[in-house]
Design a protein around this nucleic acid. Structure first.
Lengths: 337, 337
DNA sequence: CAAGTTACCGAAAGCGCTTTCGGGAAGAGG
DNA sequence: CCTCTTCCCGAAAGCGCTTTCGGTAACTTG
């Protein structure tokens, strides 16, 4: 492949001139630039990224911290959509993504340490647990950073409009005639969970609907099983809800399972509305009505906020809230009289 | 954070000694090593990865080429499981994954070029299209490489035992009494598709079952829609099959949809068996019986084959075939008499 | 006690690139 | 014809680290 020295030797120019030609400096004539470029193509020369980074202090790499409660990593059906869209957006600007291990040659270090070691230009964290000490550490650092699906005053963040999403869900059920509306919630330590609870409470209040005892149940961390268990608690109630707003699609799948196992029908006996709009809910029975989060737009917004900081070379703290919308399918029906 | 020079100044030793202490050379006394390590901790010194790579020619990074026909990237429900497992396995050895963009500061280059530019230690390619010129180029290069879900004599490969998987599927249907067994296949340009076709033909032959005209239908690239369309062609036949072996779970979802839309029932009228065992098929109705590919093991095997080459510093060409197994759920039933 | 080991440390070169700064040649202006 | 710009180009330092090689001090050994 050769180095810049080889190119210099081949063309007869100094490495300085070669470097300048390659980097479009203005103080090299078109003629010599052409010669150098041609020679570079001939010996398919490629600059060494490490050498470049060393001397420019810019690595063209973005560190990704991806971590969620259920440890499924890239298999996470919602987060992986965000990552994918983020990747597209940053790729266009010439950045590579690096998924850092926490293990540097068997000395384990924090994500921050690792990212500093790798000298990334920016960091994106997709992590649901705001208490994670690793995340805190990243947010305290001075590396440009953007955090997805989590709120914070100390760095740029992007997340869906969860309050509005919850309101959409509750209002929709209300329009269908439901009054006994329960909420199967995500854990409050997760911002998205907390916000949807708040939205639920707000919406109920606006509609003058009381939240009956036992109608707000914490289902933990968005897994199918937890959703199922939560629904079972709801089904034990004397005064069962006629509709339930579930804080996540995966939980909603468990919820429907539980309802079916109890011999009841969705949506005829109980209406269910989810949150996220992950792919698989189009294929279950009944197809799940849900609040759609726009992963494409979330990823793009995250990229935008990060790129902004990286070019400005200073930390900004912008907050971007992405609109959600209701996707009507078949899991909700008018209340039975 | 400081450099090795700062550390040297702080401790009074030369940078040579500092470097040696950090890298566990034997020719530095325990006492001075301790001092240096302590000082390093105090100023939380971290070596700069670019400088290290530049001088050692080892980047501790693995390039990932991830590309499939449907352009869903990391959202791909099967491939993302492999990546995740691969990531775990390589992480343990201290490697980071780099998802390379094909765009180097707005000059577009090939994956190979990009990986050379980044000086990765190895490459993993997860790509279904064997004709992809980019993949060919990677395989021709001299960088350690492992290819997943594709066969080749020129580099290390790992894939599932597709022949055996197809055989398992067909035999299972046969045991249920089915004789009219169709195959909705993946495109033959994709190794996995071709192998499953071959397995299907083999198994049918072994059972002395003729493959009726129209029973082998190419459904293209494993999407739900393509599966659906293929099934519709099958349903137009005068002599309809009683069971169909579908080369991918996503296609099988479309297949079931098509059957239902025609007023028929799965599995009572037609049995369906899929391939892959992606998560969502546990939640559809009926739960899909399928051939399970072990993504964990595939990812681990890929990591193993790659690490092997990277430490040996030479290209090996080992072939690893991962066993599959039948997962019985509810989409197949004994044939009606 | 002289000679030979062994243990520990440092000077310096090198990895491949960028960038400042200065200098020579060619052109502009009087 | 002389001075002042403008246009090109290159020497050299520097980015932060590793590694070879040699040298000194301390320690054995007979």
């Amino acid at each position: 492949m050769g180095t810049i020295y080889d190119l210099a030797k081949k063309t007869g120019f100094s490495i300085t001139t070669v470097s300048k030609a390659l980097n479009n400096y203005k103080d090299v004539s078109d003629k010599t630039r052409a010669k150098i470029l041609q020679a570079a193509a001939e010996m398919d020369y490629l600059p060494n990224a490490h050498a470049q980074s060393l001397s420019t202090k810019k690595s063209w790499a973005i560190g990704v911290m991806f971590s969620e409660a259920n440890e499924v990593g890239m298999k996470h059906p919602f987060f992986n959509g965000i990552i994918e869209s983020f990747r597209h957006a940053t790729e266009e600007q010439g950045y590579d993504l690096i998924f850092a291990s926490r293990n540097l040659r068997n000395r384990d270090m924090s994500y921050l340490e690792h990212f500093k070691h790798r000298a990334v230009d920016g960091i994106v964290v997709i992590c649901s647990d705001r208490m994670d000490e690793q995340v805190q550490e990243l947010m305290r650092s001075d590396i440009p950073i953007v955090v997805v699906d989590m709120d914070s005053a100390n760095c740029s963040v992007v997340y869906s409009d969860n309050i509005e999403g919850a309101r959409l869900a509750v209002n929709y059920l209300h329009e269908l005639g439901h009054r006994k509306i329960a909420h199967i919630a995500g854990d409050e330590t997760i911002d998205a969970g907390a916000a949807r609870i708040k939205g639920y409470e707000l919406a109920m209040q606006e509609l003058n609907l009381p939240i009956q005892p036992g109608y707000l149940v914490n289902a933990g961390f968005f897994s199918v099983d937890e959703g199922k268990q939560a629904m079972e608690r709801l089904l034990e109630l004397d005064d069962q809800p006629t509709a339930v707003f579930v804080a996540g699609d995966q939980m909603a799948i468990g919820v429907i399972e539980a309802i079916h196992e109890h011999g009841l029908h969705v949506p005829n006996d109980i209406s269910v509305i989810g949150y996220d709009d992950i792919e698989m809910i189009q294929y279950i029975t009944p197809k799940l009505t849900t609040i759609r989060q726009d992963t494409d737009e979330i990823g793009e917004a995250a990229a935008e906020l990060l790129l902004e900081q990286m070019t400005a070379k200073e930390r900004l703290t912008e907050r971007r809230i992405i609109p959600v919308r209701l996707v009507e399918r078949a899991s909700c029906a008018p209340v039975k009289q």
